[in-house]
Structure formats: structure tokens, C-alpha cells
């Protein structure tokens, strides 16, 4: 236990330390986000991530948002286990047809009003996989999408910025 505490003390708080050119942008977007989350989500934005056929590259970068460098929870954003607790769905992958119905059900299990962000080139357009016997392509081919974060995969900072922009700018999609 002492060693654990020792290590904790040595390393200290490492959150932030983004590349210098991104830092001001992050701070600006971060402040805006915290404001938006405070105003619209009573200080807490709950995200449910749905892998709809991703290669798992996007998941690795979304997971990184929880590492101590990005620590997205400090902006009031956290990932939840059930769509029923979620305000926002982060959907990855070229929607494999085998995940299509599960995605639709996850969407309808998410209470209104809700946001949907399609993540990655796959989520945006089907990416390298496009539309085929096995994939339905862009997430918007299956459920309504409010915003897209492109990249293959988008880096954690791009994800953070994309989420902030999406909820800062857009009104949530009401029941459609």
C-alpha cells in the first residue's frame, strides 16, 4: 500500500499535457463543453458507446479518453453501461448487418432527447468496408445521426473536440 501511495505521489496529477498547439483549443472547447454540459445535462453527460462492426481501432481511442491524460470525466462526461442511462450514443463501425438490429434497439432504448455521433471513417461513410452483403455502411443509413467525427481512428483529442462541438452547437435530436 505504501508503495502505491509513493507512486501516486511521485507521478502526481498528469491530466492535460496535450500537444502545445492543441492546448488552447482544448481549453476553449473544454470551457464551452463544461458550460454546455452544465446547462443542458445538469453537469453530467452520459455516453453509451456502441460498436456496430468496428475493427476495434476506434474503441482503443475512445477508451483512451478515460486515461489520466485526457480524463474526460473532468468535463462532466462519463461512459455508462446501459443505453437507458445515456444522453448520447457514440457509434463506431460500418454497421455490420449482424449488428444492425442491436443498434436500432440500443437507439430506441436511449431516452429522448438524445444525440447520436457516428465515429470514425467507418461510422461516417462505411470507410474501407462501405456497403456490402455484410455491412449497411454509414451509421446514418440505420439510425438518425447528429454529428460525425471522422478519422481512422480519430485520435482521443479529435474525439474530445468532436463531442464538445456536437453538444455545444447542436440541439439534441428530439423523438423522431
Amino acid at each position: 500500500m505504501l508503495r502505491v501511495l509513493g507512486k501516486v505521489q511521485r507521478i502526481g496529477i498528469i491530466t492535460e499535457s496535450l500537444p502545445p498547439q492543441e492546448e488552447p483549443v482544448l481549453r476553449a472547447v473544454g470551457a464551452e463543453l463544461q458550460e454546455a454540459v452544465a446547462a443542458r445535462f445538469r453537469g453530467s453527460l452520459a455516453i453509451r458507446q456502441v460498436d456496430a462492426g468496428s475493427c476495434n481501432g476506434c474503441e482503443l481511442e475512445i477508451q483512451a479518453l478515460n486515461n489520466p491524460y485526457y480524463g474526460i470525466e473532468r468535463f462532466g462526461v462519463h461512459f455508462v453501461a446501459s443505453p437507458r442511462h445515456a444522453d448520447l450514443l457514440l457509434v463506431t463501425g460500418p454497421v455490420s448487418r449482424h449488428m444492425e438490429e442491436a443498434l436500432r434497439r440500443t437507439y430506441s432504448a436511449t431516452p429522448d432527447p438524445k444525440f447520436v455521433i457516428a465515429v470514425g471513417d467507418c461510422g461516417a461513410s462505411g470507410g474501407e468496408f462501405a456497403v456490402s452483403y455484410a455491412c449497411a455502411g454509414a451509421v446514418s443509413n440505420v439510425i438518425p445521426v447528429d454529428a460525425v467525427i471522422a478519422g481512422c481512428p480519430p485520435a482521443p483529442f479529435a474525439l474530445m473536440q468532436g463531442i464538445l462541438e456536437a453538444i455545444g452547437v447542436r440541439r439534441p435530436a428530439t423523438a423522431r
Binding site: D51, G53, P94, S96, M99, E128, S132, Y133, A134, C135
Partner: peptide, 11 residues
């Protein structure tokens, strides 16, 4: 399994 079958072999 099989939920993320993307048809890679066909593609």
C-alpha cells in the same frame, strides 16, 4: 460470435 462480420474475405 459473428456480430462484426464485415465480409473482409469478399471485400
Amino acid at each position: 460470435l459473428g456480430y462484426v462480420h464485415k465480409g473482409i474475405e469478399k471485400l
